[in-house]
Protein backbone atom coordinates (compact mmCIF):
# COMPACT_ATOMS: atom_id res chain seq x y z
CA UNK A 1 0.00 0.00 0.00
CA UNK A 2 2.67 2.45 1.03
CA UNK A 3 4.79 1.63 -1.99
CA UNK A 4 1.96 1.99 -4.33
CA UNK A 5 1.09 5.30 -2.74
CA UNK A 6 4.62 6.58 -3.16
CA UNK A 7 4.79 5.56 -6.75
CA UNK A 8 1.52 7.25 -7.50
CA UNK A 9 2.61 10.30 -5.59
CA UNK A 10 5.52 10.62 -7.94
CA UNK A 11 3.43 10.28 -11.00
CA UNK A 12 -0.30 10.54 -10.41
CA UNK A 13 -0.98 9.76 -14.03
CA UNK A 14 0.02 6.17 -13.30
CA UNK A 15 -2.84 5.85 -10.87
CA UNK A 16 -4.90 3.23 -12.57
CA UNK A 17 -7.96 3.84 -10.44
CA UNK A 18 -8.73 7.15 -12.08
CA UNK A 19 -7.74 6.05 -15.53
CA UNK A 20 -8.83 2.46 -15.71
CA UNK A 21 -11.49 3.50 -18.17
CA UNK A 22 -8.59 3.99 -20.54
CA UNK A 23 -9.30 0.68 -22.16
CA UNK A 24 -12.88 1.59 -22.63
CA UNK A 25 -12.07 4.86 -24.30
CA UNK A 26 -8.81 3.60 -25.70
CA UNK A 27 -10.19 3.11 -29.15
CA UNK A 28 -11.38 6.65 -29.28
CA UNK A 29 -8.17 8.08 -27.97
CA UNK A 30 -6.20 6.13 -30.52
CA UNK A 31 -8.29 7.82 -33.13
CA UNK A 32 -5.89 10.68 -33.44
CA UNK A 33 -8.09 12.56 -35.87
CA UNK A 34 -10.31 13.87 -33.12
CA UNK A 35 -8.72 17.04 -31.89
CA UNK A 36 -9.06 18.11 -28.32
CA UNK A 37 -11.35 21.00 -29.23
CA UNK A 38 -13.81 18.58 -30.81
CA UNK A 39 -13.65 16.41 -27.71
CA UNK A 40 -14.22 19.51 -25.59
CA UNK A 41 -17.27 20.32 -27.67
CA UNK A 42 -18.62 16.78 -27.53
CA UNK A 43 -18.10 16.44 -23.81
CA UNK A 44 -18.93 19.92 -22.52
CA UNK A 45 -20.88 21.53 -25.35
CA UNK A 46 -18.47 24.48 -25.27
CA UNK A 47 -17.21 25.93 -28.56
CA UNK A 48 -13.69 27.24 -28.19
CA UNK A 49 -14.10 29.10 -31.47
CA UNK A 50 -16.30 31.63 -29.62
CA UNK A 51 -13.19 33.04 -27.97
CA UNK A 52 -11.82 36.14 -29.68
CA UNK A 53 -8.76 36.37 -27.49
CA UNK A 54 -9.57 39.54 -25.62
CA UNK A 55 -7.80 38.17 -22.57
CA UNK A 56 -10.38 39.26 -20.02
CA UNK A 57 -10.30 35.76 -18.48
CA UNK A 58 -6.60 36.03 -17.85
CA UNK A 59 -6.90 39.59 -16.66
CA UNK A 60 -9.47 38.59 -14.06
CA UNK A 61 -7.95 35.28 -13.04
CA UNK A 62 -6.64 35.48 -9.46
CA UNK A 63 -4.06 32.85 -10.28
CA UNK A 64 -2.91 33.77 -13.75
CA UNK A 65 0.57 34.56 -12.49
CA UNK A 66 0.81 31.05 -11.02
CA UNK A 67 -0.04 29.45 -14.34
CA UNK A 68 2.39 28.24 -16.95
CA UNK A 69 -0.07 28.96 -19.76
CA UNK A 70 -2.52 31.86 -19.53
CA UNK A 71 -6.22 30.89 -19.63
CA UNK A 72 -6.82 32.68 -22.91
CA UNK A 73 -3.77 30.98 -24.36
CA UNK A 74 -5.25 27.62 -23.36
CA UNK A 75 -8.25 28.49 -25.51
CA UNK A 76 -5.99 29.71 -28.32
CA UNK A 77 -4.01 26.46 -28.27
CA UNK A 78 -7.27 24.52 -28.38
CA UNK A 79 -8.52 26.65 -31.27
CA UNK A 80 -5.48 25.76 -33.36
CA UNK A 81 -6.13 22.12 -32.61
CA UNK A 82 -2.77 20.62 -33.44
CA UNK A 83 -1.65 17.46 -31.65
CA UNK A 84 1.32 19.25 -30.26
CA UNK A 85 -0.76 22.05 -28.80
CA UNK A 86 -3.40 19.67 -27.46
CA UNK A 87 -0.64 17.88 -25.61
CA UNK A 88 0.69 21.17 -24.34
CA UNK A 89 -2.73 22.03 -22.94
CA UNK A 90 -3.21 18.68 -21.25
CA UNK A 91 0.22 18.72 -19.69
CA UNK A 92 -0.11 22.31 -18.46
CA UNK A 93 0.02 23.25 -14.79
CA UNK A 94 -2.70 25.81 -15.47
CA UNK A 95 -5.54 23.33 -15.57
CA UNK A 96 -4.64 22.07 -12.11
CA UNK A 97 -3.93 25.31 -10.35
CA UNK A 98 -7.30 26.72 -11.48
CA UNK A 99 -9.47 27.28 -8.40
CA UNK A 100 -12.81 27.07 -10.20
CA UNK A 101 -13.67 30.51 -8.85
CA UNK A 102 -15.65 31.11 -12.07
CA UNK A 103 -14.44 34.70 -12.46
CA UNK A 104 -13.29 34.05 -16.04
CA UNK A 105 -16.68 32.72 -17.06
CA UNK A 106 -18.56 35.51 -15.31
CA UNK A 107 -16.48 38.18 -17.02
CA UNK A 108 -16.16 36.58 -20.46
CA UNK A 109 -17.92 38.70 -23.07
CA UNK A 110 -18.61 35.59 -25.12
CA UNK A 111 -19.67 33.46 -22.15
CA UNK A 112 -17.18 30.69 -22.80
CA UNK A 113 -17.47 28.29 -19.88
CA UNK A 114 -13.77 27.95 -19.22
CA UNK A 115 -14.27 26.29 -15.81
CA UNK A 116 -16.28 23.51 -17.42
CA UNK A 117 -13.65 23.10 -20.13
CA UNK A 118 -10.94 23.01 -17.46
CA UNK A 119 -12.78 20.32 -15.51
CA UNK A 120 -12.90 18.22 -18.64
CA UNK A 121 -9.25 18.90 -19.47
CA UNK A 122 -8.25 17.71 -16.01
CA UNK A 123 -9.90 14.34 -16.36
CA UNK A 124 -8.62 14.01 -19.92
CA UNK A 125 -5.13 14.90 -18.76
CA UNK A 126 -5.18 12.08 -16.21
CA UNK A 127 -6.72 9.71 -18.69
CA UNK A 128 -3.92 10.33 -21.15
CA UNK A 129 -1.24 10.23 -18.44
CA UNK A 130 -0.19 13.76 -19.29
CA UNK A 131 -0.76 15.49 -15.97
CA UNK A 132 1.87 18.05 -15.11
CA UNK A 133 4.27 16.73 -12.45
CA UNK A 134 4.23 20.08 -10.71
CA UNK A 135 0.54 19.45 -10.06
CA UNK A 136 1.16 16.22 -8.17
CA UNK A 137 0.34 17.86 -4.86
CA UNK A 138 -2.95 19.15 -6.15
CA UNK A 139 -3.92 15.90 -7.81
CA UNK A 140 -2.92 13.97 -4.74
CA UNK A 141 -5.08 16.19 -2.64
CA UNK A 142 -8.08 15.62 -4.90
CA UNK A 143 -7.48 11.89 -4.74
CA UNK A 144 -7.06 11.88 -1.02
CA UNK A 145 -10.25 13.86 -0.77
CA UNK A 146 -12.19 11.48 -2.97
CA UNK A 147 -10.61 8.54 -1.18
CA UNK A 148 -11.87 9.94 2.08
CA UNK A 149 -15.45 10.36 0.92
CA UNK A 150 -15.39 7.10 -1.01
CA UNK A 151 -14.68 5.40 2.27
CA UNK A 152 -17.00 7.20 4.63
CA UNK A 153 -19.31 9.25 2.44
CA UNK A 154 -18.29 12.39 4.24
CA UNK A 155 -15.13 14.33 4.50
CA UNK A 156 -13.00 13.31 7.41
CA UNK A 157 -10.55 16.16 7.68
CA UNK A 158 -8.06 14.48 9.88
CA UNK A 159 -7.99 11.42 7.71
CA UNK A 160 -7.87 13.59 4.62
CA UNK A 161 -4.88 15.47 5.84
CA UNK A 162 -3.08 12.30 6.85
CA UNK A 163 -3.97 10.61 3.57
CA UNK A 164 -2.85 13.60 1.61
CA UNK A 165 0.38 13.88 3.54
CA UNK A 166 1.12 10.25 2.76
CA UNK A 167 0.51 10.84 -0.89
CA UNK A 168 2.32 14.12 -0.95
CA UNK A 169 5.10 12.93 1.31
CA UNK A 170 4.85 16.25 3.07
CA UNK A 171 3.93 15.19 6.54
CA UNK A 172 4.86 18.37 8.32
CA UNK A 173 2.97 21.00 6.41
CA UNK A 174 -0.02 22.21 8.38
CA UNK A 175 0.93 20.19 11.42
CA UNK A 176 1.26 23.45 13.23
CA UNK A 177 -2.30 24.36 12.55
CA UNK A 178 -3.69 21.06 13.78
CA UNK A 179 -3.27 21.55 17.55
CA UNK A 180 -5.04 24.88 17.52
CA UNK A 181 -7.77 23.42 15.36
CA UNK A 182 -8.21 20.71 17.93
CA UNK A 183 -8.33 23.17 20.79
CA UNK A 184 -10.94 25.18 18.88
CA UNK A 185 -12.95 22.01 18.37
CA UNK A 186 -12.48 22.08 14.66
CA UNK A 187 -10.76 18.77 14.01
CA UNK A 188 -12.27 15.43 14.91
CA UNK A 189 -10.46 12.14 15.26
CA UNK A 190 -13.40 9.88 14.70
CA UNK A 191 -14.77 9.97 11.21
CA UNK A 192 -18.47 10.67 10.68
CA UNK A 193 -19.84 8.05 8.38
CA UNK A 194 -22.73 7.73 6.01
CA UNK A 195 -24.77 4.69 7.03
CA UNK A 196 -25.42 3.59 3.50
CA UNK A 197 -21.74 3.66 2.61
CA UNK A 198 -22.10 0.88 0.06
CA UNK A 199 -24.29 3.20 -1.97
CA UNK A 200 -21.53 5.81 -2.04
CA UNK A 201 -19.07 3.19 -3.20
CA UNK A 202 -21.55 2.22 -5.91
CA UNK A 203 -21.73 5.82 -7.06
CA UNK A 204 -17.96 5.95 -7.35
CA UNK A 205 -17.89 2.62 -9.12
CA UNK A 206 -20.52 3.62 -11.65
CA UNK A 207 -19.27 7.10 -12.41
CA UNK A 208 -15.53 6.85 -12.41
CA UNK A 209 -15.60 3.69 -14.46
CA UNK A 210 -18.24 4.60 -16.97
CA UNK A 211 -17.83 8.19 -17.74
CA UNK A 212 -15.32 10.15 -19.66
CA UNK A 213 -15.53 13.12 -17.37
CA UNK A 214 -17.40 15.48 -19.62
CA UNK A 215 -21.02 15.41 -20.68
Amino acid sequence: MQNNMTEIAENPSKDTYYSNDLQKWGAEIKNKDISLKELVFNETGEKVSLCYQCGKCTAGCPLSDEMDIAPNTILRLLQIGSKEYDRKVLSSYTIWVCLSCETCMARCPKEVDLPAITDFLRSESIRRHLANRKANNIINFHKAFLHSIRGSGRLYEFGLVIGYKLRAKNLFQDVLLAPSMITHGKLKFIPAKVKNSSQIKEIFQKTINNNRGGK
Binding site: Y18, R122, L146, I200, I203, T207, I208, N211, K215
Partner: peptide, 25 residues
Protein backbone atom coordinates in the same frame (compact mmCIF):
# COMPACT_ATOMS: atom_id res chain seq x y z
CA UNK B 1 -30.97 11.93 6.47
CA UNK B 2 -27.72 10.14 5.94
CA UNK B 3 -26.35 12.88 3.72
CA UNK B 4 -23.04 12.54 1.99
CA UNK B 5 -20.28 14.89 0.92
CA UNK B 6 -21.03 17.01 -2.14
CA UNK B 7 -17.73 16.02 -3.71
CA UNK B 8 -16.38 19.57 -3.76
CA UNK B 9 -13.64 20.66 -6.13
CA UNK B 10 -12.05 17.24 -6.08
CA UNK B 11 -15.05 15.54 -7.67
CA UNK B 12 -15.61 18.01 -10.47
CA UNK B 13 -11.92 18.16 -11.15
CA UNK B 14 -11.77 14.46 -11.65
CA UNK B 15 -15.12 13.30 -12.98
CA UNK B 16 -18.19 15.23 -14.00
CA UNK B 17 -20.76 12.51 -13.46
CA UNK B 18 -19.40 11.85 -9.99
CA UNK B 19 -19.68 15.57 -9.27
CA UNK B 20 -23.36 15.39 -10.18
CA UNK B 21 -24.21 12.07 -8.60
CA UNK B 22 -22.86 12.87 -5.12
CA UNK B 23 -24.97 16.02 -4.61
CA UNK B 24 -27.93 14.49 -6.43
CA UNK B 25 -28.12 11.66 -3.89
Amino acid sequence: EDWNCCGATAAHSMNRMLSIALPAR
